[in-house]
Design a protein around this nucleic acid. Structure first.
Length: 927
RNA sequence: GGGCGGUUAGCUCAGCUGGUUAGAGCGCGUGCCUUACAAGCACGAGGUCGCAGGUUCGAGUCCUGCACUGCCCA
C-alpha cells in the first residue's frame, strides 16, 4: 500500500471515521473482570451532562482532560473504565418541555402529571442523545456499553433504597421551614441553586406607632410589602436609642395589628435606623429570630408569590404590585418616612432567573452534620486528595459550616419521594407503596407529590452505577474509583455530596485486595488509602474556559464559543491540544483561536513528517513493520525506552536521550495533572528536536545507496516515529491513529494505537555526553547561520569557515560531524586552526570554540560594535554578580555544592568570553 | 462585609518545592518556494517580573503593606 498522504493535513477527512471505528470495535468497553485478576485498575466517572445539554467549551476541556488521563492509563496496561451517562436534570428538563407546551398554548397542569411525564420521556428520546453524540465525535474513550441515565429503573430503585435507609436512620426529616422558593418553577430550591445578583434598589423607612405613647419607631426595609406579615419589631440590646422601648408594643400600620418590640441581634445598630421589622414567614433571618422569640408566622403569599388572604386588602395582588400599593398607602397615611437608594443582593433562581421568594413550606431535609463530618475527615486525612490544593481549604470550610440540605422539589420530573400520606395525616416512608395505613388502616395512602433534588441521585452515582445496593463484582473491582475531574462550580453540588453518600453507604466496603495492591504499585501511590468507602481517591478541579478577552462565556453576552465550530475549522486534535496546553492548574483559560491555529500547524507538521518517513520507506519498497519496536504490540505492556534503536552516530544517541527525557517529563507532569507541561513537552520534542534537528541530520544517511548506512537510519526514523505517536496519542488521538495505522500497512498488530503500550523512560538511554556535544554542535551551526545573516550572505551561497576549538575532544567531535555543519549551516569547507579567531570580523566566540565565516563582504562595523557592546555589558554584569557571590563566605558555606560549582564554571566561561569579546572590539576599533 | 486568586515581552500565557543567563505561542522585522511541511525554514528585535519594604548567601518564586483587577460566599 503506497503511503500517499495529502500534502496538508485535513482532519475532517479522518476524525469521524476513527471515532466511529473506536465505537464499532468496542475498544473501550470493559467487561467485569473475573476474580483472580491482578492487573491494576483505573476507574473514572464522567460527570453526567444534562440530557438537555449541548456541548460547550467547559465540557470539552473536562472531557479532553479525562480522555488524556484515561487513554494514558489504558496504554499503561490498567484495566481502564470510563463510565458515561446522562443526568435527568429535574428543573432544566421540565423547563424545556414546558417551553414546548407553551408554544401550543398549554401548561403542564393542563396535561396532568402522568401525561406530562410521558411527554418528557418522549422529549428525552428525541433530543436526549444530542450531547452524547457530540461526545462521540470528540472521540471520548468511554465505555458506551455501560452508559446509564439517572432515571433508569435500577438507579431509581437505588435512590429509593437510599432515601428509606436515611429516613430509618433518622437522617431525613420533614419540616416546615423557610426555603428558597421559585414562583415560576413553583418549587423549593436549595441554597446552592440561588444566584445572588447586585441590583440598584431602595431602602424604605417606615414608622410604626408605639402603643400607649405618641412615639414612633422607624424601621428600614427593602421589601415593604412583607410588612403585612410582620409579627414583631426588633432592636439591639446594645442600642441605647431604644432601651426605653423594650417590652412595649407597636401598632402595625395598614393591618392595625399589635406586635411586640423584641430585643434581638437581628437588629444591627449601624444598619438603617437600627430597628428592623420581623417577618418570620418571608425572610430566613427573621424566621430564625421568630423561632428564638416564639413569634407567630404569618404567610402572606401563595406559591405564585401573589398575596393571599392573610394580606387583607391586598389579597390577590402580585408581590410587586402589592409593594406599590403598600407604599402608596403608607405614604398617604403618613407612615413612610424616607426612601433611599440602596444596592441589594437579589437572589435569583439559577435555572430561570426569577427572583426567589423565601417561603415557609413543608419540605424534606437531610440532617447533614453527621455525613459532613466523615466527608471532611477523609479529605483532611488525605484519603481523598484535591488538586489544586486551595480547593481543599474551600471544601473543608464549606463542610464545616454546612446547613441541612433541602432535598424535596415540587416538580414533576424526577425521582418521586418514596413516601405516602394517609388521610389521617400519617406519613409512611417505604420501599414500596403500602397497601394500607399502619395507623388508621385506611387503604391506599397517596404518594407525596414531591420529587428529589437532582443532585440527590447524582450524588449516589459512584456506587449505584456499579450495581449498588447489590454487592457486585464491579464494586469489588472499580470502587473506590480513582479520580474525578470536574468544574469548581459543582464542587459543593456534586463532589461534596458524592463524598458524603459514598462514605456513608459504602462504609466497610473493601476493594479486591489483589487489584488494590497492583494498582497501588502501578500508581506509585504511597498515600494512606485505607478507607475504601470513599467514592474516589483524587479530585482534580479544572479551570473555567473564558473567551479570548477573559470574559465568562454566556448566551446573553453572545460570546459563547461553540467547540464543534472550532473543531470543524481546526480539527479535534488541535482543539484538544489547545485546551491541554493552556490548562495550567488553577488558572482559567482564555480561549484564543490563535493558539488553536498554532496547534493545527503542529498537526500539519506531524503529518508532513509522516509523509517524509513514508517517502523514505517506500523508496526502497520495504514494509514498515511494527517490529522495529517489538514491545509495541504487547497489549498493556509499557515499553521502557526505545528498544532496537541503533546508536550509530551522535545524533542517534542524542535523540534517544532526548526522547527518554521527554517521556520521563510527560509521565511526571501527567501524574500531577499538569496537562500544559505534558503537551508543551511533547510539542517541543517532536518539533524542536525530532523534526528540526534529527530528521535534518539523518537526511544524507537516508539518501545513501549503501544499505549499511541507510538501513539503521531508516529503522530509527520509523522506530522513533512510532514511539512518538504513542507518546502523543492521549492528547491527539486522531492523527496518531491515522498515521499509526498507515505505518502498519493495514495490518496493525492491534486494533488501535489506543491499545498499544505507552512509552516509558529508560534512564540507561539518557546520554549526557551526547546531549552536551550536540548542544555545542547546534551552537556552532546557529552561530554560523547568524553571522551569515549579518554579513548578508545570499542564502544559496556556500561559505568557507574556520574553527578554533582548544579542547581536543571538542575539535574531534566537530571534525566527526563536519558533514552536519556543512549541510545545516550551508558551509563549503571547514578549516581547523590553532589560534583564537575572536579578533576577526565575521567571527563568533563561545567558551568552547571560535568560528570565523570567511566572506569578503565588509561587515557593518557600527552595528557589530553595537551588538558587541551589549554583549560585553551583559557579560560584565554576569561576572560582577558571580564574583560578588563567590566572594561571599556565607554563600560558599550555605549554598549547595553543585550550585557553587556550577557558578564557578560559568564564571570561567564568562571570563574567557569577556576576553574574546574585548579583543574583537579593539580590533574593530569600537569605542 | 467575609474568603480566595491574579498583575511576567505588543497580545495570550508558562515559570512546580527560592539557585547559575526569566521561557513559549501569536504578532513584529529581515532573508528564503532548500527535493516532508509557506499551516513551512533560517536569523533577529522585544521584559528594571504592578509598587514599596522585609526575610535570605541568593527572590519572578517566601513574608508584610499598598495599588489595580477578577471570582466565590453573605
Amino acid at each position: 500500500m503506497p503511503h500517499e498522504l495529502p500534502k496538508a493535513y485535513v482532519p475532517g477527512a479522518i476524525e469521524a471515521r476513527w471515532a466511529a471505528y473506536w465505537i464499532k470495535e468496542k475498544l473501550f468497553s470493559v467487561p467485569t473482570p473475573p476474580p483472580g485478576e491482578t492487573r491494576p485498575v483505573f476507574a473514572l466517572l464522567l460527570p453526567p451532562p444534562n440530557v438537555t445539554g449541548r456541548l460547550h467549551m467547559g465540557h470539552m476541556l473536562n472531557q479532553t482532560q479525562m480522555d488524556i488521563i484515561v487513554r494514558w492509563h489504558r496504554m499503561r496496561g490498567f484495566i481502564t473504565l470510563w463510565l458515561p451517562g446522562t443526568d435527568h436534570a429535574g428543573i432544566a428538563t421540565q423547563m424545556m418541555v414546558e417551553r414546548d407546551l407553551a408554544k401550543e398554548g398549554k401548561k403542564r397542569r393542563d396535561l396532568g402529571r402522568e401525561k406530562f411525564i410521558e411527554r418528557v420521556w418522549e422529549w428525552k428520546k428525541q433530543y436526549g442523545n444530542a450531547i452524547t453524540d457530540q461526545m462521540k465525535r470528540l472521540g471520548a474513550s468511554v465505555d458506551w456499553d455501560r452508559e446509564y441515565f439517572t432515571m433508569d429503573e435500577n438507579l431509581s430503585r437505588a435512590v429509593r433504597e437510599v432515601f428509606v435507609r436515611l429516613y430509618e436512620e433518622g437522617l431525613i426529616y420533614r419540616g416546615k421551614y423557610i426555603v428558597n422558593w421559585c414562583p415560576r418553577c413553583e418549587t423549593a430550591i436549595s441554597d446552592l441553586e440561588v444566584k445572588h445578583e447586585e441590583v440598584a434598589g431602595k431602602l424604605w423607612e417606615i414608622r410604626y406607632p408605639v402603643v400607649g405613647s405618641s412615639e414612633f419607631i422607624t424601621v428600614a426595609t427593602t421589601r415593604p410589602e412583607t410588612m403585612l406579615g410582620d409579627t414583631a419589631v426588633a432592636v439591639n440590646a446594645k442600642d441605647e436609642r431604644y432601651t426605653h422601648l423594650h417590652g412595649k408594643k407597636v401598632l402595625l400600620p395598614l393591618m392595625n395589628r399589635e406586635i411586640p418590640i423584641i430585643v434581638d441581634e437581628l437588629a444591627q445598630p449601624e444598619f438603617g435606623t437600627g430597628a428592623v421589622k420581623v417577618t418570620p414567614a418571608h425572610d430566613p433571618n427573621d424566621f430564625a429570630a421568630g423561632k428564638r422569640h416564639n413569634l407567630p408566622q404569618i404567610d402572606i403569599m401563595d406559591e405564585h408569590a401573589c398575596m393571599n388572604q392573610n394580606a387583607g386588602a391586598y389579597a390577590g395582588l402580585d408581590r410587586y404590585e402589592a409593594r406599590k400599593r403598600v407604599l402608596a398607602d403608607l405614604r398617604e397615611q403618613g407612615f413612610l418616612v424616607a426612601e433611599k437608594d440602596y444596592t441589594l443582593a437579589l437572589g435569583k433562581c439559577d435555572r430561570c432567573g426569577t427572583v426567589i421568594e423565601p417561603r415557609l413550606s413543608q419540605q424534606w431535609f437531610i440532617k447533614i452534620k453527621p455525613l459532613a463530618e466523615k466527608a471532611a475527615q477523609v479529605v483532611e486525612s488525605g484519603e481523598i486528595t484535591i488538586v489544586p490544593e486551595n480547593y481543599r481549604t474551600i471544601y473543608l470550610n464549606w463542610m464545616n459550616n454546612i446547613y441541612d440540605w433541602c432535598i424535596s422539589r415540587q416538580l414533576w420530573w424526577g425521582h418521586r419521594i418514596p413516601a405516602w400520606k394517609c388521610s389521617c395525616g400519617e406519613v409512611i416512608v417505604a420501599r414500596q407503596a403500602p397497601a394500607a395505613c399502619p395507623i388508621c388502616g385506611a387503604e391506599k395512602p397517596e404518594q407525596v407529590t414531591d420529587v428529589l433534588d437532582t443532585w440527590f441521585s447524582s450524588g449516589l452515582l459512584p456506587f449505584t452505577t456499579l450495581g449498588w445496593p447489590e454487592k457486585t463484582r464491579d464494586q469489588e473491582v472499580f470502587y473506590p474509583t480513582t479520580l474525578l475531574i470536574t468544574a469548581y462550580e459543582i464542587l459543593f453540588f456534586w463532589v461534596a455530596r458524592m463524598i458524603m453518600f459514598g462514605c456513608h453507604f459504602m462504609a466497610g466496603h473493601e476493594q479486591d485486595p489483589a487489584i488494590k495492591k497492583a494498582t497501588t504499585k502501578a500508581e506509585c501511590d504511597d498515600g494512606p488509602r485505607k478507607d475504601d468507602s470513599v467514592p474516589f481517591h483524587h479530585v482534580y478541579i479544572h479551570a473555567l474556559v473564558r473567551d479570548a478577552e477573559r470574559q465568562k462565556m454566556s448566551k446573553t453576552k453572545g460570546n459563547v464559543i461553540d467547540p464543534l465550530d472550532i473543531i470543524e475549522r481546526f480539527g479535534t486534535d488541535a482543539v484538544r491540544f489547545t485546551l491541554a496546553a493552556m490548562a495550567a492548574p488553577g488558572t482559567d483559560i482564555a480561549f484564543n483561536e490563535n493558539r488553536t491555529e498554532g496547534y493545527r500547524a503542529f498537526a500539519n507538521k506531524i503529518w508532513n513528517a509522516a509523509r517524509f518517513m513514508f517517502m523514505n520507506v517506500d523508496r526502497v519498497r520495504q514494509r514498515v513493520g511494527p517490529c522495529e519496536s517489538p514491545n509495541a504490540d504487547v497489549k498493556g505492556a509499557p515499553q521502557v525506552g526505545i528498544s532496537g534503536f541503533k546508536t550509530v552516530r551522535l545524533e542517534d544517541r542524542w535523540i534517544l536521550s532526548r526522547f527518554n527525557r521527554a517521556a520521563e517529563d510527560v509521565y511526571t507532569t501527567l501524574e500531577a495533572f499538569r496537562f500544559h507541561e505534558a503537551a508543551n513537552r511533547i510539542y517541543d520534542f517532536f518539533w524542536g528536536d525530532f523534526c528540526d534537528w534529527y530528521i535534518e541530520l539523518i537526511k544524507p544517511r537516508l539518501l545513501s545507496d549503501n544499505e549499511e548506512i541507510y538501513a539503521p537510519a531508516r529503522a530509527n526514523l520509523v522506530n522513533l516515529f512510532e514511539t512518538s505517536l504513542r507518546l502523543l496519542h492521549p492528547i491527539m488521538p486522531f492523527i496518531t491513529e491515522e498515521i499509526w495505522q498507515a505505518m502498519h500497512d493495514g495490518a496493525p498488530p492491534l486494533k488501535s494505537i489506543a491499545l498499544a503500550g505507552y512509552p516509558e523512560s529508560d534512564w540507561a538511554q539518557v546520554d549526557l555526553t551526547a546531549e552536551t556535544e550536540m548542544a555545542i554542535l547546534q551552537d556552532l551551526i546557529v552561530n554560523v547561520r547568524n553571522v551569515r545573516a549579518e554579513l548578508k550572505v545570499e542564502s544559496k551561497v556556500k561559505v568557507a569557515i574556520e574553527v578554533f576549538a582548544e579542547e581536543p575532544h571538542i575539535r574531534g567531535m566537530i571534525e566527526g560531524n563536519q558533514g552536519a555543519v556543512e549541510r545545516l549551516a550551508n558551509v563549503e569547507t571547514i578549516t581547523f586552526v590553532d589560534a583564537s579567531l575572536a579578533k576577526h570580523a565575521g567571527s563568533r566566540s563561545t567558551a568552547r570554540f571560535d568560528v570565523h565565516v570567511v566572506y569578503e563582504r565588509k561587515i557593518d562595523t557600527a552595528a557589530e560594535c553595537e551588538r558587541l557592546k551589549k554583549e560585553f555589558e551583559k557579560i560584565e554584569k554576569g561576572i560582577a554578580t558571580g564574583q560578588r557571590q563567590l566572594g561571599n563566605e556565607q554563600f560558599l558555606a550555605k549554598a549547595p555544592p553543585n550550585v557553587v560549582e556550577g557558578l564557578r564554571r560559568h564564571q570561567e566561561e564568562l571570563a574567557l568570553l569577556q576576553e574574546k569579546t574585548k579583543s574583537k572590539m579593539q580590533e574593530l576599533g569600537c569605542r
